[in-house]
Structures are given as structure tokens and as C-alpha cells.
Amino acid sequence: MSCVQEAIDNSPAPAHMTVDGAFGPQTYSGVKAFQQWWNQSGYTPHLSVDGVVGPQTGDQMLGYVGAGCYLYVPSTD
């Protein structure tokens, strides 16, 4: 979970995370903020704003973390 938190914290999304490795309310809100930011920025694909890190959201988050996170963030690859 720390990779998801790092991605949110490193992205331009309006959310800042405490990287603690736990998926709690702060991470859930951060994922939703990332998804909303992504959609409002006009990027594709359009992400569901549901707070879930599935393959589509994970694909977009991978651009904001180091290569060590590729094994831990869901993606379509």
C-alpha cells in the first residue's frame, strides 16, 4: 500500500499522504482525489471515482512512483 500512497503524494493531485502502508480513510480519500484530478485534467482513460485502485487507476499511478512499485500496484500489463 505504501506504493499507492507514494504515487498519490508524488502526483499533482490535491492530496498529501502519510506513507504508512495502511489503506485507511486517508488513503481512500487520496485515491478518490487522484481519480478526480486525473479526470478533471482531461487525461484518458476516464477513471471511476470510487477510491479503488484497480488496473486502470493503478496504470496511471505507476507514472508517479519508482520502478520498485511495479510489482505492488495493479495494472493492465
Rank of each mutant, 00 (worst) to 15 (best):
P74G: 01
G21K: 01
P74V: 02
P55M: 09
V49C: 03
T27A: 07
Y28T: 10
P14K: 12
V4E: 05
L62D: 09
M61L: 15
V53I: 00
G54W: 04
D20I: 06
Q40W: 12
S2H: 15
C69T: 04
Q56P: 06
K32M: 10
G66K: 11
S2Y: 14
H16D: 14
P45T: 05
A15Q: 02
F23G: 07
M1Q: 15
E6H: 12
L47D: 01
G58K: 12
N10E: 11
S41F: 00
C3D: 04
C3F: 02
S2K: 15
H46D: 07
D59T: 13
Y64L: 03
A13V: 14
Q26W: 06
G21P: 07
V53R: 00
S48V: 12
L71R: 08
Y28M: 09
D9P: 03
D59K: 07
Q56M: 13
V73D: 01
Y28F: 13
W37D: 09
V65Y: 00
C69D: 05
S75Y: 05
A22H: 13
A67F: 12
T27V: 05
V65T: 00
P12N: 11
T57A: 00
A22N: 14
G24Q: 09
V73N: 02
V73M: 00
W37T: 12
M1G: 12
P25M: 09
Q56C: 04
F34A: 10
G51F: 04
V19I: 05
N10T: 11
G68F: 03
M61Y: 00
W38I: 04
A13S: 15
E6A: 15
A15S: 15
T76G: 01
G54Q: 08
C3Q: 03
L71Y: 08
S41W: 05
N10R: 14
W37L: 13
V73L: 09
D20N: 15
V4I: 13
N39S: 15
H46R: 15
T27H: 03
Q35Y: 04
P25E: 14
N39Q: 08
M1H: 14
V73Q: 01
Q60C: 07
P12E: 04
Q60P: 03
G68W: 05
N39E: 09
W38E: 13
E6Q: 14
F23N: 10
S48A: 15
D50Q: 00
M1A: 15
G30H: 02
D50H: 11
Y72E: 11
V4C: 13
V4S: 08
D77H: 10
C3N: 11
W38A: 10
V31A: 11
F34Y: 15
A33H: 04
T76D: 09
G68V: 08
Y28I: 06
A67I: 14
M61G: 04
N39C: 13
M1N: 14
A13P: 04
V4Y: 03
Q60W: 03
Q5W: 12
A33R: 05
E6F: 10
V52S: 12
Y72H: 08
A33P: 07
S48Q: 13
M17D: 07
Y72L: 10
S29K: 12
D20Q: 09
P14I: 11
S2R: 15
